[in-house]
Simulated assay, not measured.
Amino acid sequence: MKSTQAVELTEVTKHYAHGVTALDDVTIGFGLGTFTAVMGPSGSGKSTLLQCAAGLDRPSSGRVVVDGRDLATLGDRKLTLLRRDRIGFVFQSFNLLPSLTAEQNVALPLRLAGRRPDRELVRRSLAAVGLAERGRHRPAEMSGGQQQRVAIARALVTRPAVLFADEPTGALDAGTSREVLRLMRDLVDGQAQTIIMVTHDPIAASYADRVVFLADGRFYGELHDPTAELVATRMLQLEAASC
């Protein structure tokens, strides 16, 4: 029977040097076609959770399954291929190449994979983020919000099973942030895209179906159908408890 989870972490622990435990026995699943925000105080393990879930870092113990593949069973080459073909990444910095047009930036993952870019696929990816008419523009000719949408289109061009977003609106103003968050919400509702987003912003988290909270590397509960007010209240409680 096919799993309903796009990503599953089971008893995941991650130790770093000098006795630092970034994740401590975390078990959590992320359903197919859902939008999850991951939140917690500074040092709570949010980024480590994303890195382990996306196969960017290996846990010290525990099991991570992405798109039905147990990452512990994959060698470096197969893990690289999984990340390239089935996982998309969006970060706070857009990481667009300034000398390339929007179309060329979106096509880059296909070229790096040794595939000849399908121009229609690239154009559809840009159209999906509302930039069908900006394909020939370079990053300097676009606003910050448009650049982030190009970065999202680039992440979607390989049709990933999961899109990981690390503070995707952190460098944007409030109005532009709302545009990007509405786009991500539409991708989930309209295309059943699975999105896992690390954020510190309760307003950003309110666009998700569910908010997962971490503190001191441990799972500290969740909210479904969150509002910004409920998320902010929960964060204040967590921050007070971790002081």
Rank of each mutant, 00 (worst) to 15 (best):
V231E: 00
V157Q: 12
P168E: 08
P226Y: 12
L126E: 05
M1L: 11
K14A: 04
V188H: 06
S60N: 08
P226S: 08
A228K: 08
V90H: 14
T176R: 14
V180Q: 13
P168V: 11
S99G: 06
R58Y: 00
A171N: 15
T34S: 14
D118P: 06
R111H: 02
T80V: 08
Q237M: 02
Q191R: 10
N95A: 15
L181V: 12
P41K: 10
S93C: 13
L223M: 04
F219Q: 01
S125H: 04
R86S: 14
G170F: 10
R124K: 12
Y16M: 02
T73F: 06
G75T: 13
V12R: 09
L181R: 10
S99N: 06
H137A: 07
Q193A: 05
V162A: 00
T13V: 08
G190C: 10
A140M: 03
P168T: 07
L230H: 14
D173F: 12
G190F: 09
I195C: 07
E120T: 14
G170A: 15
R86T: 06
L100P: 04
R86I: 02
F164R: 02
A37T: 04
C243N: 01
D76M: 14
P139N: 01
V64Q: 00
P59F: 02
D186K: 09
R134P: 01
G221C: 06
L223A: 03
D57H: 03
A72N: 14
L108C: 02
D166N: 13
G135H: 01
M142T: 04
G40L: 07
A240W: 01
M235S: 00
L71K: 05
L108Y: 02
